[in-house]
Simulated scan of single mutants.
Amino acid sequence: MKARIPKNVNGGGAQNMNQMIKQAQKMQDQITELQEDIEAREFSATAGGGAVEVTITGKKTIKALTLKPEVVDPEDIDMLQDLIISAVNEAISNVENTTESEMSKITGGVSLPGLF
């Protein structure tokens, strides 16, 4: 007597693989759309109680830098430099945190190296 092997012994075979490929393509499309959306956004951060404000794009390019007159002290350039660095770093961190948070919604929290 010959044993009969069910048609879907491997969980659907090619059909299951096609479904996985479609899901992966959909996820890739969502990731691409999100990356474009984030790159088009602006992110702002301040330092020194608002004395320095920086606005960057989602591509991490500085778009605007605003200094309140009271923070410009020729005798303390080091403080001004520190405030600018702090504001820029905070804005970059905002871009990265937003990207990571919104990507995890698409990927289900799975880290996909090289995506962002």
Rank of each mutant, 00 (worst) to 15 (best):
Q25R: 13
K60G: 03
V9Y: 15
P113D: 07
E102W: 04
T98E: 14
E96L: 08
G13T: 00
T55V: 15
M17Q: 11
D37M: 05
T107S: 03
S111Q: 11
E33G: 08
E53V: 10
N8H: 14
K68M: 06
A91I: 07
N10C: 12
A64V: 08
V9P: 02
F116R: 10
I38D: 07
V71E: 06
E33R: 04
A91S: 07
E100C: 00
S86T: 08
M1T: 06
S44K: 06
E36M: 02
Q28R: 13
A64G: 09
L65S: 09
L83F: 03
L65N: 08
E33H: 06
M103E: 06
V110E: 10
Q81F: 03
Q35V: 02
Q25H: 07
V52W: 12
S44C: 02
A45K: 13
T99G: 03
F116V: 09
T99F: 11
N16I: 09
N97M: 11
L83I: 01
V9F: 15
K7H: 10
G49P: 14
A91W: 03
E39T: 01
L83E: 09
R41L: 02
E42D: 14
L115H: 05
E75N: 06
R41F: 02
V52C: 14
N97K: 15
N10V: 13
V54Y: 01
Q23L: 12
K60Y: 01
S101W: 02
I31T: 05
T61R: 03
A51F: 09
Q35C: 07
T98G: 01
E70G: 04
E42C: 04
A40M: 00
G114E: 05
I62P: 00
Q23A: 14
R41K: 05
